[in-house]
Every structure is written in C-alpha cells, then in structure tokens.
C-alpha cells in the first residue's frame, strides 16, 4: 500500500489488482504497472525503502468481451 501511494504520488499509472495465478497461489494483492515504468519503480523503491516481493512481466491482456465470470 505504501508502494501504491508513493507511485501514485509520482503520477504513475498504477492499479491495485489480485495477484495473477501465474505468480502466486494465494489470493494476494499486486500492483499493475506499465512496463516502461519498471526501472523508475525499482529506483523509487530503493530510495524510499519500500519492500516488494518481485516485479514480474506477464503477457496478459484484459478482454472485456470474454464474459467469463467464474
């Protein structure tokens, strides 16, 4: 959450999302970020001593016409 607030304050396009299943088996919280912002995020995190488990790239798209609701 601290990470989210800090990145938001810096004007980045960030969204809170459930952790994708490819990355963790627990329903956890992740931040969705843009690929081009990743280096900047690593910098911010180390400067402000924010902790994160990892940054992973996923080739996922959101498809609002899939109509799969579980």
């Amino acid at each position: 959450m601290a990470m989210y607030r800090s990145l938001k304050a810096k004007g980045l396009n960030v969204r809170i999302s459930p952790t994708p299943r490819e990355l963790s088996v627990c329903c956890g919280v992740s931040l969705l970020v843009l690929e081009e912002d990743i280096d900047f995020i690593r910098e911010v995190a180390s400067e402000e001593n924010l902790s994160y488990i990892s940054i992973e790239g996923l080739n996922n798209t959101f498809d609002n016409t899939r109509h799969r609701y579980g």
Binding site: P18, R21, C27, D63, N64, R68
Partner: peptide, 17 residues
C-alpha cells in the same frame, strides 16, 4: 484454491479493462 484461480482473470476483464 480453484476459486482463487478464476478471480484475477475476471477482475482484470471486468474492472481493469
């Protein structure tokens, strides 16, 4: 765990899109 499996996809499609 099976329920957890579908949540991220559905949330992505419905909300994040």
């Amino acid at each position: 765990d099976m329920l957890c499996e579908v949540l991220p996809g559905a949330v992505g499609d419905v909300f994040m899109s």
